[in-house]
Design a protein around this nucleic acid. Sequence first.
DNA 1: CAACCGCCCTGGGAGC
DNA 2: TGCTCCCAGGGCGGTT
Length: 277
Amino acid sequence: MPELPEVETTRRGIEPHLVARVITSIIIRQPKLRWLIPEHITSTYPGQQIVTVNRRGKYILLTTKNHQAISSTLLFHLGMSGSLRIVGQSDLPGRHDHVDFVLDNNKRLRFHDPRRFGSLLECPAHQPHSHHLLSQLGPEPLSDEFSGEYLYDRSRNRKLSVKNFLMDSHVVVGLGNIYAAEALFHAGIHPFREAGNISLKRYTILAQQIKKVIDYAIQQGGTTLRDFVNATGKPGYFQQQLNVYGRENQPCVQCHAPIRKLKQSQRSTWYCPRCQH
DNA sequence: CAACCGCCCTGGGAGC
DNA sequence: TGCTCCCAGGGCGGTT
């Protein structure tokens, strides 16, 4: 389940194979992802050169230019089970390999997504960030804009739980169920606590822990639970650092109390009943 | 506006 | 062994 660290790991993995390459053809085997893949990309992108591979939140933005230096941007979201990998010519597509971008060195960028919660869309040519999926996104957690003060200000008068608040991409991008639970553990904050009722002091600690956990997970190549593999098909190693996620009834690494699992907004959450309050 | 809920989808695991 | 059921989850879009 790719959250920000897994998407960034993917971006770093594919970027060196893509920049300056020309797209030869695009093969769409299954256009029905979260949204329909626009069919015209199979005719408009061949011949275009890839200029940059960027990330915004959990989205990967692939920008190209044509001979007249007019640019376009493709927007990828990996959903829950998506991956982008570089494969060779002889690497035959399997089930759920929905799209191939064939490159001028005969390698391919392959979009695989069993659950099809991912997406592949096109952005406006000159201002990709004005796309409706990007324009309302909150700050990057590793940016200076994201701070305890920011979280404190944004959460005033909000009644929802702090965990749901953190998982709202309009508040901050990139945090899913895993990293939200882990960051709250490190900050000692109970996931059910009301967002609008947490002090600036505690939000300052929380913002620091979010940055720390995201940064460290990127260094570890992300978390692999079931599906995630990086651009070369290798798993990440951050799952070895998980303190609460998926650890119900196992002892807390700090106090040895059994970790609890509860449903929160139809989603599981894990926490230490002694360390988090 | 905020909060909530349904929905999109498949694979893996548990239970029978 | 094979069936059924449940769960995992991001985030949009509609409703309250």
